[in-house]
Amino acid sequence: MDRYVCTVCGYVYDPAVGDPDSGVKPGTKFEDIPDDWECPICGASKSDFEKES
C-alpha cells in the first residue's frame, strides 16, 4: 500500500498505521479515507497529499 505525503507540512500517511485519532483504522488505504479527512498535523485537505516517491 502506498504512503502519501502532505505537501503542506511533510506529514506522511502510512496505511499500516492509519490515523486512529481521526478514526482511520490501521490498514486503511489512502484512497479509502473519507474526503473530508484532514492532515492530523496541519489540517491540510486530502487533496493536498501526494503519493510518496
Binding site: V8, C9, I41, C42, G43, A44
Partner: peptide, 9 residues
Amino acid sequence: LETRMLHWP
C-alpha cells in the same frame, strides 16, 4: 481561530 501552519501546527 485556528491558523494551522501559520506558521506552526
